[in-house]
Design a protein around this nucleic acid. Structure first.
Length: 182
DNA sequence: AAGCTCTTCAACCGCAATCAC
DNA sequence: TGTGATTGCGGTTGAAGAGCT
């Protein structure tokens, strides 16, 4: 029972693509296009499943793709669009010519999330952490809020780049403690 | 130089949406 | 209109290289 596999896994190669496989796939698509991914590996003489071929083509082999670093303006676009659309990577990638959803997703997860956190901005809500802490302080009971602020402070105190954030959290924490003591 | 940890990113997985009949 | 096949999408994984001790 269960889900029908997209292909016979026993007869299918997995893992990194070789230049030879890339050539086979590229030249087949150049001649026949990308209709029916299920048949493409068979007809192109590849021991891969159609899904793997489609991914390789859309994320790496397509001739219109950019392969270099993301520019500052591309990064700004991603951050802006992410604040509106969230993790709708294909929607975001559609606004960046030559970039794929996988590219954008990887770049967000490895670079931009950290960059925003380092600037004291929550990468999920795109609000400053201090603002979120203030919101928490008004929502939770004082002892819980103080406990949470202390935990958050502990998470960030060793990060050089988050000194400002740490200072802000520290102030929030102090305010909560005062409130708690009243 | 060796071993360990961290970072990056290509590739995979499974679900949802869409298509074809 | 229902159903199976195909495609698209977002989350996750793991290999490889870089950096650190």
């Amino acid at each position: 029972m269960g889900r029908i596999p997209c292909c016979e896994k026993d007869n299918v190669k997995r893992g990194q693509w070789t230049p030879e496989e890339d050539n086979k796939l590229s030249s087949y698509i150049a001649q026949h296009g990308t209709r029916n991914w299920r048949l493409i590996p068979k007809n192109a003489g590849l021991q891969r499943c159609g899904k793997s071929c489609r991914l390789r083509w859309t994320n790496y082999l397509r001739p219109d793709l950019k392969h270099g670093q993301f520019s500052d303006s591309e990064e700004q676009t991603i951050v802006k669009l992410h604040s509106v659309f969230g993790n709708r990577w294909s929607l975001i990638a559609a606004q960046l010519p030559g970039r794929t959803d996988n590219d954008v997703k990887n770049h967000w997860n490895t670079k931009l999330k950290k960059k925003l956190s380092g600037m004291g901005i929550d990468p999920v809500t795109h609000k400053p952490f201090s603002h979120l802490m203030a919101e928490i302080a008004t929502t939770l009971a004082p002892p819980q809020a103080a406990h949470l602020a202390e935990a958050a402070l502990g998470c960030f105190k060793d990060e050089k780049r988050t000194t400002k954030l740490s200072t802000r959290l520290s102030l929030t924490f102090q305010r909560l403690r005062k409130r708690n003591l009243k």
